[in-house]
Design a protein around this nucleic acid. Structure first.
Length: 815
RNA sequence: GCCCGAGUGGCGGAAUUGGUAUACGCGCAGCACUUAAAAUGCUGUGACCUAAACAGUCGUGCCGGUUCGACCCCGGCCUCGGGCACCA
């Protein structure tokens, strides 16, 4: 019998007590090369901002923590780490406002965030904590960049970028909010400047193919594939006689070549640069001034200008005019198109506006008015006016057209991608310096690897300079350096890396965390530790938000594939993440996204103070499916608090019995099965419900000590503090979180009696209880069912045409 | 426009993937304890019909289909949420 402990459930006492003990005892340590099977469970590391960690963090971290605790109990060597993605704009903006060095503000925020995370009862391995702003960390972020550089995947290039005229800096796409600068709100325009670019497009196909080595949920795979946007088609050459030149276009519809009645070049196209015509020059000038937003928002009304050039349609041999319009993008395909207004809606709109001819080369099966709309169907209709591929389906004509073009050497198969190369420069201060110097003699020179890291110097002003350069440009001590090749004077690159750079490889840093601190300048973090990486990789379960399903996931997968190509990560492991799960979003109680301006922000720390971390954890998981968008409801949180109080009171009471209650034993075994399966399937809400059901039954009877212990074990991942306390009070040794997950007895799960539904024509008319042993005996069930009074009533005077019996479930009489 | 996801009581959501719709929780109502309230415990709670119980009818966004049987599968819509978008 357990001792009596009649005091009230006091989370304020219980929770900090155990958090301290867990920290001192280090029970959540992940062990390198342990014999137990490993499980690498990862949540997206947070950004430690002045706002502290928010409810969304508490939610996703808790979900991850349930998995970590569960798999630990299941006998796995679990790695569940935490770190800080600490470079980035918020810290820099804060520095601009206050003049406080971002390094100091960030360090402070990290301390506060650590306190929060610990207070939530997360079972992370704090020995492996990392921060992207630590020079020993970003040394390797820079090293990866140098490897790209060596392999020709990183280069400095003239690129059109988003430009904020007020802040005088280039902005990444993610820093442009609705066409305006995220920082100052000014309207963003386009500007071409020299930028570091990483050729992620070289990996486009492999990033698609690699998905088959993962177990990502469908929507994640879909978003990756969508973003890459692979499309197959053809490149076709169009000759220009005067002046002699040619235009190459990319098209997915080579079958419509006979219908190409004009061509369109993007304003940035090479050929356009030599045209002297005033109207053309003017058009190009206005196009340049337009922001991306304007260019795409004006999609209703097409603009354009005739170039004065004519090209030869290689199929018809006819001359067709070449136009210039900004609806053709310079960054996709070849920056030029053949326009087939009869079979492309955009070309159609352009032709209508400028009175260009529309020539159908595919006839639909039904009626079609080519004066109203383009016909774009590929799998229906028949080609016409196309001597080389006449009278066949467009999809077949595509193949024939390709063959014909290849034979005639005017075109070939080609693939295009929506994916663009990755602009890697930022004119910000608070980021990793790009390890390149510019020597007067030798030109662009990479910093030798043994001189890494190139440390970020302190600056006085965090705003960019008037020239649009990074604030680093003004630190002359730092900028002026020596060339590693010739020893002559050189200047450092002053652009820094984007926020993605540090998060590209952080999942590799956790297994290597202790190596980060002690590495020598000669050693190589990756190459020297391949075996360790091989032990821990891949990440078994990666939990994150939908907002990172495309870019972060793509960039980090690309980084991994690249590192694998150069042998820096294990060859045996093709992808960094095996399973990717996305968590949902919690809205404020008004059903709106939480934001300071709306005043609907729920502070997780307040909830923890009022009801305890365990209550909050239970509630976050119980509120709905883990990947749903859900609305915060304080009353439901209190319901979970009540549940924990009832648990406490049950254990406080002295209603223990010596003998197992058979009904309870069955429920207990069913619950062991259910909770375990639900956790594995990320159905936390129903796992919690099952625990509540079990508690309800336990409250109605006297329980054995064994039952009580088992219940605690099942609850342990969800309410780690409470269960640890009660575990101790039952007289057990520390810690409940080092116990094994309970096993269930399959024989005890089966119900003794089955309730069988009786249907007439599929409508429920009654139920009957049958001994489980008899459920296979259809004759017997039929007999019992027919004796049911209600059934008798319905069957009276009816002829039974058919009887459907589902063993143990229902019997249906068809009359 | 394209690609995902979702529509179930007063509310959040369950439903062994074709087999008794609404588990669990919240809310609400009643009762017990209390001088009273809070807390706690117990009972009830889809709608309609009925004095009530029984019985019955309806019921998972809408219309139709398949099936002995459909929240679940098929066809056609509607609404909401998220992402992408002049990508040739």
């Amino acid at each position: 019998m357990a001792e009596k402990f009649p005091e009230k459930y006091n989370h304020r006492e219980v929770e900090p007590k155990w958090e301290k003990k867990w920290e001192e005892s280090g029970i959540y340590k992940a062990i390198d090369f342990d014999e137990k099977p490993k499980k690498y469970i990862l949540f997206e590391f947070p950004y430690p901002s002045g706002e502290r960690l928010h409810l969304g963090h508490a939610f996703s971290f808790t979900g991850t923590d349930i998995l970590a605790r569960f798999y630990r109990m299941k006998g796995f060597n679990v790695l569940c780490p935490i770190g800080w993605d600490a470079f980035g704009l918020p810290a820099e903006n804060y520095a601009i406002k206050t003049g406080i060095n971002p390094a100091i503000a960030t360090a402070e925020n990290i301390i506060n965030s650590q306190k929060q995370a610990k207070r939530w009862g997360l079972s992370v391995d704090w020995n492996r904590e990392i921060s992207t702003t630590d020079p020993q960390y970003y040394k390797w972020t820079q090293w990866i960049f140098l490897q790209w550089y060596k392999k020709g995947l990183a280069e400095k290039k003239e690129m059109p970028i988003n430009w904020c005229p007020a802040c005088k800096i280039g902005l990444a796409n993610e820093e442009v909010i609705g066409g305006n600068c995220e920082r100052c709100g000014a309207e963003v325009s386009r500007r071409t400047i020299k930028q570091w670019v990483v050729k992620i497009t070289a990996y486009a196909d492999r990033l698609i193919e690699g998905l088959k080595n993962t177990d990502f949920i469908e929507k994640v795979k879909a978003s990756q594939i969508n973003w890459i946007g692979r499309s197959e088609g053809a490149e076709i050459k169009f000759e220009i006689r005067n002046p002699k030149s040619e235009i190459v276009v990319f098209t997915t519809r080579p079958d419509t070549l006979y219908g190409a009645t004009f061509m369109v070049l993007s304003p940035e196209h090479e050929l356009v640069k030599n045209i002297r015509d005033e109207k053309v020059k003017k058009y190009i000038e206005t196009a340049r001034k337009k922001s991306d937003l304007e260019r795409t928002e004006l999609n209703k009304e097409k603009t354009g200008v005739f170039s004065g050039l004519y090209a030869i349609n290689p199929a018809t041999g006819e001359e067709i005019p070449v136009w210039i319009s900004d609806f053709v993008l310079s960054s996709y395909g070849t920056g030029a198109i053949m326009a087939v207004p009869a079979h492309d809606q955009r070309d159609f709109a352009f032709a209508k506006k400028f009175g260009l001819p529309i020539v159908p080369v595919i006839v639909p099966e039904g009626k079609w008015n080519f004066d109203e709309k383009a016909y774009t169907e590929v799998n229906e209709g028949m080609t016409v006016n196309s001597p080389e591929w006449e009278g066949i389906k467009p999809s077949e004509a595509i193949k024939k057209a390709l063959e014909w073009m290849e034979k005639k050497a005017i075109g070939r198969k080609s693939v295009s991608y929506h994916l663009r190369d990755w602009i890697f420069s930022r004119q910000h201060y608070w980021g990793e310096p790009i390890p390149i110097v510019y020597c007067e003699k030798c030109g662009e020179v990479p910093v030798p690897e043994d001189q890494l890291p190139v440390e970020l110097p302190e600056v006085e002003k965090y705003k960019p300079t008037d020239s649009g350069e990074s604030p680093l440009a003004s630190v002359s001590d730092w900028v002026n350096t020596k060339c590693s090749k010739c020893g002559g004077p050189a200047k450092r690159e002053t652009d820094t890396m984007p926020n993605w750079a540090g998060s590209d490889w952080y999942y590799l840093a956790y297994p290597l965390a202790d190596k980060l601190e002690v590495q020598s300048s000669q050693g190589n973090l990756f190459l020297d530790n391949l075996e360790l990486l091989k032990y821990w990789l891949p990440v078994d379960i990666y939990l994150g938000g939908d907002e990172h399903n495309t870019l972060h996931l793509l960039y980090s997968r690309f980084t991994y594939l690249f590192l694998r190509d150069i042998g820096a990560v294990p060859q045996e492991i093709p992808e960094p993440y095996y399973k990717r799960l996305s968590h949902g979003v919690i809205l404020g109680k008004d059903g709106q996204r939480m934001s300071k301006s709306r005043g609907n922000v729920i502070n997780p720390d307040e909830a923890v103070e009022a009801f305890g971390a365990d209550s909050l954890r239970m509630y976050l998981l119980f509120m709905g499916p883990f990947d749903y968008t859900m609305v915060w409801n304080q009353e439901n949180l209190e319901g979970c608090f009540r549940f924990l109080k009832r648990v406490w009171n049950l254990f406080t009471g002295s209603n223990q019995s010596e003998v197992d209650d058979q009904i309870l034993l069955r429920k207990l075994n069913q619950t062991i099965k259910k909770v375990g399966e639900d956790i594995e399937e990320i159905k936390f809400n129903t796992a919690v419900a099952a625990l509540m059901e079990l508690l309800n039954e336990m409250c109605n009877v006297e329980c054995t000590i064994k039952t009580l212990k088992t219940f605690l074990l099942l609850l342990a991942p969800f309410a780690p503090h409470l269960t640890e306390e009660l575990w101790e009070k039952l007289g057990n040794k520390f810690s409940i979180h080092q116990q094994s997950w309970p096993e269930y007895n399959p024989e005890l799960i089966a119900e003794e009696v089955a309730v069988i539904a009786i249907q007439i024509n599929g409508k429920l008319r009654g139920t009957t209880e049958v001994q489980s042993a008899k459920i296979r005996d259809q004759k017997e069930i039929e007999r019992i069912a027919k004796e049911n009074d209600k059934v008798k009533k319905y069957l009276k005077g009816q002829e039974i045409k058919r009887i459907v019996y589902v063993p143990g479930r229902l019997i249906n009489f068809v009359v």
